[in-house]
C-alpha cells in the first residue's frame, strides 16, 4: 500500500483540508467533470457520453503492443522503447512534484506523450527528442490545468538531460498540438473518479479520502505501459476499488461487481486491471517507502529532513542521475550558447 493508512481516518482527511493542495473542489478532474459530491449528483447521461468518447483520447492498443514487443526491435522501427518512455514519465513526475502540479496535469502530460508517440515516430527514441517531447507535453498539460503556469523553459529542471531554447519548445508544442489534432481536453480516469467515489460511498462521507487514494493509485501506475491496455473508465474503476479496499465497510468483494457502475464497463477487464494494479501497488509499497505525492508534500521543504528512516522523495527518485553535474551543464548551455547545442551537451550526447 502506498500511504500507510492511519487508524484514525479523520486525521488524514484533516491533513488534506488543512489548507494546501488537494481541496475538494480542486481535486483532479477533467474537461467534463467536477469533483465535489454535490456537483456530481447528475450523472447518467454525462457518464455514458464520457464512456462513448473515451476511446478518442487513448493511444490505441496497437501502441501498447508495440511497446511490449518493441524492446529489441525498436531501433530499427524507430518505434518507442519502453525504457525511454519510463524514463520520460519518471522525469515528468519529478517536475510535477517539484512544482506541486495537480495530479491531472501529470496524467495529461503522459497521455499527450503516448498519443503523440502512437502516431509519430521520433528520430531517435531515447535521446533528446524524447526529452523535448516530455517538456512540450508537460508544458501543454500545465497550461490546460494549472492556475499558475510556469513557462515551459522553466520546466526543464529535475535532472533534465538537455535544455531547449524557448523557441524550440514552442515549435515542439505546435507539433504535438497538430499531431493530437489540437484536442487536449482528454477524457482520463480522473473524469470518472468523482462519480465512482459516490458509487462505493453514496453518502460522500469518505469522498476526500477515496479521491486521494485512487488518484495516488492511478499516478503511481502511469509509468507502467501495461495499463495502456485499459480504458480510462476501467482504470478509474480499479483505482476506486483499490481506494475503497482500505475502508472495510466499503470494500467490494468481487471487483467485477463494479461493472454496474456505468455502461461500457466489462467485468473481466475490471478484474484484470484491478489485479495488476493491486499487485503493482503492493509490490511498490514493499519495495520502497511510501511515495509522497505532491498534494501531501505540504510539510516537505527542500532541505528539511525526514525524521523517520524513509528517504526523501527527491533522493529516492534521482538515484541514477549525476544530478548536480547535469544541472551545471544545463546552466552553461543556456547562458553561454543561446542558438545551438552547447559544447558540453554535445559531449554528453556522444
Amino acid at each position: 500500500m502506498l500511504v500507510s493508512f492511519p487508524d484514525p481516518l479523520p486525521d488524514l482527511l484533516c491533513d488534506e483540508d488543512s489548507g494546501t493542495v488537494l481541496s475538494e473542489a480542486e481535486s483532479p478532474g477533467c474537461s467534463s467533470d467536477s469533483s465535489s459530491p454535490a456537483a456530481l449528483a447528475i450523472d447518467g447521461l454525462l457518464l455514458t457520453e464520457l464512456v462513448l468518447r473515451e476511446k478518442d483520447f487513448v493511444p490505441g492498443l496497437e501502441y501498447a503492443s508495440r511497446l511490449r514487443g518493441g524492446t529489441h526491435q525498436y531501433r530499427h522501427q524507430h518505434s518507442v522503447s519502453p525504457a525511454a518512455r519510463e524514463e520520460s514519465v519518471a522525469w515528468i513526475l519529478k517536475v510535477h512534484a517539484s512544482y506541486r502540479f495537480q495530479p491531472l496535469t501529470a496524467y495529461l502530460s503522459v497521455n499527450y506523450m503516448d498519443r503523440f508517440l502512437h502516431s509519430r515516430c521520433l528520430p531517435e527514441s531515447d535521446g533528446w527528442p524524447m526529452q523535448l517531447l516530455s517538456v512540450a507535453c508537460l508544458s501543454l498539460a500545465a497550461k490546460m490545468e494549472e492556475p499558475l503556469v510556469t513557462s515551459p523553459f522553466d520546466l526543464q529542471v529535475e535532472g533534465a538531460k538537455y535544455m531547449f531554447q524557448p523557441r524550440t519548445i514552442q515549435r515542439m508544442e505546435l507539433l504535438v498540438l497538430s499531431v493530437l489534432d489540437w484536442r487536449l481536453r482528454s477524457i482520463t480516469p480522473f473524469s470518472f473518479l468523482g462519480f465512482f467515489a459516490l458509487k462505493v460511498d453514496p453518502t460522500g462521507t469518505f469522498f476526500g479520502f477515496l479521491m486521494s487514494r485512487a488518484t495516488e493509485a492511478i499516478l503511481s501506475n502511469i509509468k507502467d505501459f501495461s495499463f495502456l491496455e485499459y480504458r480510462p473508465s476501467c482504470i478509474a474503476t480499479a483505482a476506486m476499488l483499490w481506494a475503497a479496499s482500505a475502508i472495510p465497510a466499503l470494500s467490494v468483494r468481487e471487483p467485477g461487481d463494479a461493472e454496474s457502475w456505468c455502461g461500457g464497463l466489462i467485468k473481466e477487464e475490471i478484474t484484470s486491471c484491478y489485479r495488476s494494479m493491486e499487485a503493482s501497488l503492493l509490490r511498490n509499497g514493499r519495495r520502497k517507502a511510501p511515495k509522497v505525492l505532491p498534494q501531501f508534500r505540504v510539510t516537505t521543504r527542500p532541505g528539511t529532513r525526514y525524521s523517520d528512516s524513509s528517504p526523501s522523495p527527491s533522493s529516492s527518485t534521482s538515484s541514477s542521475d549525476p544530478h548536480n553535474k547535469r544541472r551545471r551543464l544545463n546552466f552553461t548551455s543556456w547562458t553561454v550558447d543561446d542558438k545551438g547545442i552547447s559544447e558540453s551537451e554535445r559531449e554528453e550526447r556522444e
Binding site: P123, P129, L132, K339, G340
Partner: peptide, 24 residues
C-alpha cells in the same frame, strides 16, 4: 539549444540550424 533535426524542418527560415553528429 535548438532541437534541430527531423523535428525542425523549416530550417531555411532562419539559417542558424546546427546539426548534431547523431542527427546529421
Amino acid at each position: 539549444m535548438r532541437g534541430d533535426g527531423a523535428l525542425d524542418t523549416d530550417s531555411e527560415e532562419d539559417g542558424t540550424s546546427e546539426r548534431t553528429p547523431e542527427t546529421a
